[in-house]
Nucleic acid binder design. Structure first.
Length: 713
RNA sequence: AGGCGCGUAGCUCAGUUGGUUAGAGCGCUUGCUCGACACGCAAGAGGUCAGCGGUUCAAAUCCGCUCGUGCCUACCA
């Protein structure tokens, strides 16, 4: 950088799209009276031109016998070279080549063995190679050169032009590519091993889609410039012999020159690129190059969690260094987490000022709520656009956990017995059910964690705690907890404690604070929850039969509640309910667990029959093959009831017809797996039963409607 | 210029090897101070899964194109 003199590698240059000028400069041929036009945005660099390049297949030039042009103003003869880097279609197809002041030109220069002429110093001032322009600032020089070219008729024109201009990342000054001597790492051999490590599965990237980008980078990798002219960093271990000029590179101070035995050695002052040092991190932190116990135990590590924007800078280089120095990859799994962006999808950065300060957010909503939100948003392959509404929603969730625990603590004390987890057969339905659901939830959480699907972890836990544990389980056990039976109470308390403990442990990695707090409030002597083992599923708890029974009860309870709501029956008012269901097994289940239904619906008289029709003046609801009737005090609006049934029937008919279509489709029957066919058949039977119930009820209501009309008429 | 991703309920987003009655939170409607919680409870409304075409018995899910949108990388004489 001409202003702040920071030495910038190409990775540190910011490119900005800038409005500029394109100067069309004439380069007269050396031996004929003609010229070609070399366009440039930086005319001052022409003083360092050492060739003009054209594409080898450009017919405008490759047939011409002339092999050189005269560089204007300097009157130096420079060759015309053929290089496929040149784009035929840009301008006249001729490119002025300034190897000392342009990266691409440097490459062309190397290919054609061109001279390197630096025309300005590190302050951006023209040097002695610039002849009459020596001492001028680069931009002053530009003006002067344009004026001079114009004066001698060698300026073909000036066009407005927009292009990317390199700027210093620190002071935003337009930078100048300059020749300098630097240290490089020949990177190809290292990259090949690093590519192989990902290809053969020694290292897995999550999400996998980043592998493409990784391979793309690694395949097109350029030699790595590792020297930096700054104060901080590992000093490069290289010495120059003052006596004979020998260069010595080794990991120990040489003491004397191996060639001439001189002791006058001067150490290289350049330091290593910070990423070079960082690349050694997985093993240099463990005592390498010594063979320490730590290195032996911890290398290779398991998971690296990081952001994709340093996949190349850091991750890839750790892989290269690890495979090179240790002969083994530094880690097995790389989880590339999402980037938090602002509402517009922009990456948050301090310089842009669009950052959401986590401290402020945590202060407002709580750290656990903030952590849970980020976890819930962490879907793979997608960035996060943070939303305050979601954080607020999860703050409510944290509160829900707190309140549910408070409720549990009201009923738990030091005498609460530990659950005999092997022997749960005699427990009540709700207790068996919640244990089954708990094990199931742990299983799902584990699977989601194993596959780095953290949003799924959050979602599964959220649904379990709020929808199953709070909404159903805690409500279901209230009669037992507040009731007279000491055994029922004791049993329920120990299940409640067990489930709460597991839930807290599951939740702890996401919401450490609230779980730790509740943990210590639970009965019994307790150390920190951080030392607890992560829960494992308990297979013997998993009970599909009980879960199915509960689903049935939930459906019936939902039906009764629907009637309550639709009929605007006050929640505290008692009602009676009549269930009609032909299925004997279902009737038995409902009879056995009648108390579970009535407690949740404030039903006084609860009758279950195999057959029967809608009592006069009763509201109804069809759940699967069960007709639910609630007799009303006053008259009900039969037309409205019929309309409701009609709507429900339409909805189910759509599904039913779709399945019928499938099952009568020969190709479906021939090709679909038998499980799928069986499942469809089962669904069809269910829908048919529901339709039958609806039709039965509809007919009955129509009959009643007739009667009432007759009456009123 | 090349690469990657996204377009699903009013909003923010889930939906992993194709088979679910397409889900959640917020918002919306209705009713509720019942001894954890009104930061709550219960019942609801709301979606031609961007569009078109293809593969398949079966597509939000796979393929192609189009439109919209975001990001990354490189270069720009």
């Amino acid at each position: 950088c001409p202003r702040c003199h920071t030495a910038l590698s190409y990775l540190l240059v910011d490119h900005f799209h800038t409005a500029s000028k394109l100067y069309l400069t004439r380069y007269p041929f050396a031996d004929v009276i003609f010229y070609l036009v070399g366009p440039t945005t930086r005319p001052e660099t022409m003083l360092g031109d050492t060739a003009v390049a054209v594409h080898p297949e450009d017919e405008r030039y490759n047939a011409k016998p002339c092999q050189a042009v005269i560089l204007p103003l300097v009157n130096r003869q420079i060759p015309i070279v053929f290089d496929s880097h040149v784009e035929k279609d840009f301008g006249t197809g001729a490119l002025k080549v300034t190897p000392a002041h342009d990266l691409n030109d440097f490459e062309i220069g190397r290919r054609h063995d061109l001279a390197l002429i630096s025309v300005m110093d590190k302050y951006g001032v023209m040097n002695d190679q610039a002849g009459p322009y020596q001492g001028l600032d680069r931009f002053e020089c530009r003006k002067q050169i344009v004026a001079d070219l114009e004066a001698i008729g060698l300026l073909d024109g000036i066009e407005d032009y927009e292009h990317g201009v390199g700027n210093c990342y620190r002071c935003h000054t337009v930078v100048e590519p300059q020749l300098s001597k630097q240290w490089f790492v020949a990177i190809k051999p290292l990259a090949e091993k690093a590519i192989a490590a990902v290809k053969n599965g020694d290292i897995r990237l999550h999400p996998k889609s980043w592998e493409n980008t990784y391979f793309d980078w690694m395949n097109n990798i350029r030699d790595w410039c590792i020297s930096r002219q700054i104060w901080w960093g590992h000093q490069i271990p290289a010495w120059t012999c003052e006596a004979c000029g020998e260069m010595i590179v080794r990991d120990q101070e040489p003491g004397q020159c191996p060639k001439c035995q001189s002791t006058e050695l001067v150490r290289e002052t350049d330091v290593l690129d910070t990423w070079f040092s960082s690349a050694l991190w997985p093993f240099s932190t463990l005592g390498w190059p010594d063979k320490t116990r730590e290195l032996d135990f911890f290398y290779p590590t398991s998971v690296l969690i990081t952001s994709f924007d340093i996949l190349f800078f850091w991750v890839a280089r750790m892989i290269m260094m690890g495979t090179h120095f240790m002969g083994e990859v530094p880690f097995r799994d790389v989880y590339l987490h999402a980037l938090v962006r602002d509402a517009q999808g922009q990456k948050m950065s301090k310089s842009k000022g669009n950052v959401m300060d986590p401290l402020v957010v945590m202060d407002k909503y709580g750290t656990d709520a903030f952590r849970f939100t980020l976890t819930a948003f962490a879907a793979q392959g997608r960035d996060i656009r943070i939303s305050e509404e979601r954080i607020e929603g999860y703050r409510h969730f944290i509160n829900k956990i707190w309140n549910a625990s408070r409720f549990a603590l009201m009923h738990l004390d030091q005498d609460t017995a530990r659950l005999d987890i092997e022997n749960i057969g005699g427990l009540s339905m709700s207790n068996q059910w919640i244990l089954s659901r708990t094990s199931n939830t742990v299983r799902q959480v584990q699977a989601a964690l194993d596959s780095f699907q953290f949003n799924e972890v959050a979602s599964v836990i959220y649904q379990f705690i709020w929808r199953e544990f709070c909404d159903w389980y805690l409500e279901w056990i209230k009669p037992a907890l507040y009731g007279e039976s000491a055994t029922a109470k004791a049993e329920t308390r120990s299940v409640l404690l067990t489930v709460l403990e597991i839930t807290l442990k599951m939740l702890h990695p996401i919401t450490p604070f609230v779980t730790e707090e509740i943990w210590h409030a639970l009965p019994g002597p307790r150390s920190t929850i951080m030392l607890e083992a992560f829960p494992a599923p308990v297979e013997t708890w998993e009970n599909p039969a009980t879960e199915a029974d509960v689903t049935l009860l939930m459906g019936v309870i939902g039906g009764i509640r629907n009637i309550r709501s639709e009929m605007q029956i006050h929640p505290s008012a008692s009602i009676n309910a009549l269930l009609v269901c032909a299925d004997q097994t279902k009737r038995e289940t409902l009879t056995l667990h009648a108390a579970s239904v009535t407690a949740m619906t404030k039903v006084q008289e609860f009758e279950i029959k195999a057959t029967g029709e809608c009592p006069k003046g009763a509201a109804s609801y069809i759940y699967e093959d069960i007709a639910i009737f609630v007799p009303m005090q006053g008259l009900i609006d039969i037309d409205r009831e019929l309309e409701k049934l009609g709507r429900e029937r339409d909805k189910i008919m759509v599904q039913l017809q779709r399945i019928e279509g499938k099952l009568t489709n020969e190709k479906f029957m021939a090709n679909a797996p038998s499980e799928v066919v069986a499942k469809e058949q089962e669904k069809l039977d269910g829908f048919r039963a529901t339709i039958a119930k609806i039709d039965e009820n509809t007919a009955r209501l129509q009959e009643l409607n007739q009667l009432s009309h007759v009456k009123t008429d």
